[in-house]
């Protein structure tokens, strides 16, 4: 199972990349733990998660290859 992760806004300062592909991850909690291990500063950042282009809260299982978007709030106007 493949998870394609997209980072938006200032989260890319933390990750150094806009996109990442991870394998063999089966739910969003595990994905978040893995990402927080890879990028510890991500654990302190606020972001919304969209799975396959739908926002989610709480843990969600991947039912196949999936796209995840991590979206920080923007305040600028």
């Amino acid at each position: 199972m493949q998870v394609h992760i997209m980072f938006f806004g200032q989260l890319t300062d933390i990750t150094g990349t806009q996109e990442l592909v991870l394998h063999d991850i089966y739910d969003t909690n595990t994905l978040q733990e893995t990402l927080h291990e890879l990028y510890p500063a991500l654990a302190n950042a606020k972001y919304a998660i969209a799975m396959n282009k739908k926002t989610i809260q709480g843990n969600s299982m991947f039912s196949g290859d999936s796209t995840i978007a991590l979206l920080p709030p923007f305040s600028g106007g």
């Binding site: 200032q10 302190n44 950042a45 606020k46 919304a48 926002t55 809260q57 979206l71 920080p72 709030p73 923007f74 305040s75 600028g76 106007g77």
Partner: peptide, 17 residues
Amino acid sequence: LFPLPPADNEVLNCEEA
């Protein structure tokens, strides 16, 4: 989308960012 605001200094405004 964002139930709670980020902490005060977590997101920079236009002035800072």
